[in-house]
Design a protein around this nucleic acid. Structure first.
Length: 424
RNA sequence: GGAGAGGUGGCCGAGUGGUCGAAGGCGGCGGUCUUGAAAACCGCUGUGGGCGGAAGCCCACCGGGGGUUCGAAUCCCUCCCUCUCCGCCA
């Protein structure tokens, strides 16, 4: 969430910048400004009364020791009156404070100045393209047909076991999945990311920390008896590892990675977008997270984009990198690059990674701070994360792009991980 | 799941109603000493918020929330968590 002080000090800027996200913040910002003012005044009054109360309490103790009962009783009377008054003021303060919080939480992150204006994904800006689309002397099949043909993914079986959107991988199909995970993790480790195996379920505080709550409540699966959330991405547990932590400047950047399954309800999705692996409720992903110094977080973002690009290139998939326009940017992000790979069987670009800088939006919630060298006052860090990579669509693109009439070839870099070079 | 014990500052640990934001130790930082280091000694060493130009003053926080009291780390209620034993179990 944004910092209240920043909103109050720069109301026009906040309103203006959020227009880029097609978010009309005028009413909320105005209310925040008013409520914050009221809150401060009340707070000052309450604190003054409390200060007096504290003084009295100390005096009363002394007076009793000195045997000055009358004076003590007198002070007691004053203190009781103060208590009443404080109670009244706090009855006003608490709802005010709560309301203020509810308002602040509704404001999305402010987009970076380089984020292009735009309504939706059609206004995104293509930054780079790479790789060559494969050529076929036959009609390439979509991955769901290939999956059936080679018996490596069974979508219907997943429906039987759980529901739609829970594919079952089988045989060499399962091995390919595992190979991709291992490959991505090894690459991340070589790049300096510390590998974790975090919990796949988190509590409410953790889900709030990275911004899934209250914004995306309906997108997460929730356990009935223990009230946990199934993680929609490893970003959630990984970033929260550093919740309420104050780092030393020299510890930055912190680089984390994890493989986890991801669970998403994807309420409201339908149609051709959800065919096969295009959109599923459970999928595997290797995530990279960085906790960075605010002064160089955009260099870190570039570095992460280059890293993800190297992964996609190593798999030999045609790709393009797009910078999301304001309208397509997520609630929590200040800047996001999406990676799309071309998948021949569907003749479509599929989104396989999203790399974002959240600046202080998450760290303000999680209170992740660092202490600048030699300084006493702490500063909020910037948090960044990216998929490196999300498996289903990469998997789909491999099937579709590497299909031959003899079978599906395995990209060279994966062969050491699969132990075979073709699925037939 | 049952029974018991307990949650205090970066860590260990004292504190069971009143100058306690919290003894003592460890760690860390600065200094004295030393060619340098160690040792010893001295000093400093939580976070957030409010007011102030600053020095500083004030408020809150001893797992979370609520209560009793003039006054709560300390008493009561409740939730969460940890440990030990038993049960169950990959």
């Amino acid at each position: 969430m944004l910092q209240i002080k920043f909103i109050v000090d720069n109301p026009d800027y906040v309103i203006e910048r959020l227009k880029i996200k097609n978010f009309d913040a005028k009413d909320i910002v105005y209310q925040i400004t008013e409520l914050d003012k009221e809150k401060r005044e009340l707070q000052k009054e309450i604190e003054n009364l409390k200060a007096r109360q504290n003084t009295l309490a100390k005096q009363i103790g002394l007076l009793y020791k000195q045997g000055k009962k009358d004076e003590a009783e007198h002070a007691k009377k004053e203190s009781m009156d103060l208590k009443e008054r404080i109670k009244e003021l706090e009855a006003k303060f608490d709802p005010l404070d709560k309301k203020l919080f509810e308002l602040v939480v509704q404001l999305p992150n402010i987009p970076h100045k380089d984020v292009p204006a735009g309504r939706d994904e059609t206004d995104n800006e293509i930054i780079r393209e790479g790789g060559d689309k494969p050529a076929f002397d036959f009609e390439p099949l979509p991955h769901w047909e290939l999956a059936a043909k080679y018996d490596i993914i069974n979508f219907e079986l997943g429906t039987k076991l759980t529901g739609s959107g829970f594919p079952v991988f089988k045989g060499k199909g399962a091995v390919l999945q595992r190979a991709l995970i291992s490959y991505f993790l090894d690459k991340a480790r070589d790049q300096g990311f510390m590998e974790y195996v975090p919990p796949f379920m988190v509590n409410e505080a953790t889900a709030f920390g990275t911004g899934q709550l209250p914004d995306k409540e309906g997108q997460m699966y929730r356990t009935l008896l223990d009230d946990f959330y199934l993680i929609p991405t490893a970003e959630v547990p990984l970033t929260n590892i550093y919740r309420d932590i104050i780092l030393e400047e020299k510890q930055l950047p912190v680089k984390l990675t994890a493989y986890t399954p991801c669970f998403r309800r994807e309420a409201g999705s339908y149609g051709k977008d959800v065919r096969g692996l295009n959109r599923v409720h459970q999928f595997d992903k290797v995530e990279i997270v960085q906790i960075a110094h605010p002064d160089n977080s955009y260099e870190v973002l570039d570095e992460m984009v280059e890293y993800v690009e190297s992964l996609v290139q190593s798999l030999g998939l045609p790709y393009r990198i797009v910078r999301l326009c304001g309208g397509d940017l997520s609630f929590t992000s200040a800047m996001t690059y999406d990676f799309e790979v071309y998948s021949a069987g569907q003749d479509r670009w599929l989104e396989v990674s999203s790399v974002s800088n959240f600046e202080t939006f998450q760290s303000n919630r999680m209170k992740i701070r660092f202490r600048p060298n030699g300084e006493k006052k702490t500063r909020l860090v910037h948090t960044l994360n990216g998929s490196a990579l999300a498996l289903p669509r990469i998997y789909a693109a491999i099937l579709e792009n590497y299909q031959t009439q003899d079978g599906i070839k395995i990209p060279d870099v994966l062969v050491p991980y699969t132990g075979f070079d073709i699925i037939k």
